[in-house]
Design a protein around this nucleic acid. Structure first.
Lengths: 127, 127
DNA sequence: TTGACATATTCTAATATGGGAATATAATAC
DNA sequence: GTATTATATTCCCATATTAGAATATGTCAA
């Protein structure tokens, strides 16, 4: 099998930096038509349309027709799966428990580093 | 040009569900060797090794040699770029869905509690 | 209608993928 | 030494990709 489609889920869709840029722009709160996005991203129009197509398919953006224009807006809810997943790890660098654990590991690393730097006392606790 | 490499950054690395599973397992706090991951993921060993290779290259995991085994551990800091990026959008839905955050925090507490109450290697359920 | 503008789609080419099978490397045990 | 275990790497293959160019579709305006 090949790699999963970028339209398979949000994680794949936001793996592309340009698409994150588009999301960033739309997150500012204004609807934008494709031409405006083209100007701001400095990308060819077909490229922008294609990226928007991916974002549409995974539900990260919504479109409103306005005459010959398409106004795109962010659908932030689409980012929730990423948020929920990453949230699980936040404790690993912010919580008390994790802080203690982290501190202990840091101390261990520091100790190991000190040992390494002391002549005749080196002990490789790492790798 | 073709698609960016999965090893190009964290966003690409975690686009693959199996790799997120590996990260989930390692997030429980214990180092695991490849064989244990193979058992828990029910994937062929070469597949696991390859996924671990990607996670290694983007700095999401660290390895410690222990005899003929390799003990893998999560490097949560590697997830910070994703966390920081997604954080910008949090307010865009917590205003409407205030309950979400609390639910996530409850889950985080549960996770922490589980880690706290399990000093040994017995439990590793993931649900 | 004709033409200009806005956006989407199609085509090609180059490339990275993930799975499977086989193999290679490395450490341990006998 | 050889055998066994643990892990990594290499090969092939089907597939999805992104950029770019060209083209198609759709909408407005004179």
């Amino acid at each position: 099998m090949a790699r999963a489609a970028t339209t398979s889920d949000v994680f794949n869709a936001i793996a592309e930096p340009r698409r994150r840029e588009i999301v960033d722009l739309l997150a500012l709160g204004y609807r934008r038509d494709v031409t405006e996005l083209v100007r701001q991203l400095k990308l060819p129009q077909p490229a922008v349309s294609k990226h928007l197509g991916v974002l549409r398919k995974v539900g990260l953006v919504t479109v409103h027709k306005a005459g010959q224009r398409r106004l795109y807006a962010l659908n932030a809810d689409g980012l929730k799966p990423v948020h929920d997943w990453i949230q699980h790890f936040e404790q690993l660098w912010t919580d008390h428990l994790a802080g203690i654990k982290e501190a202990a590991e840091t101390t261990a690393r520091d100790l190991a580093a000190r040992n390494r730097s002391v002549p005749g006392h080196q002990r490789n606790s790492k790798e």
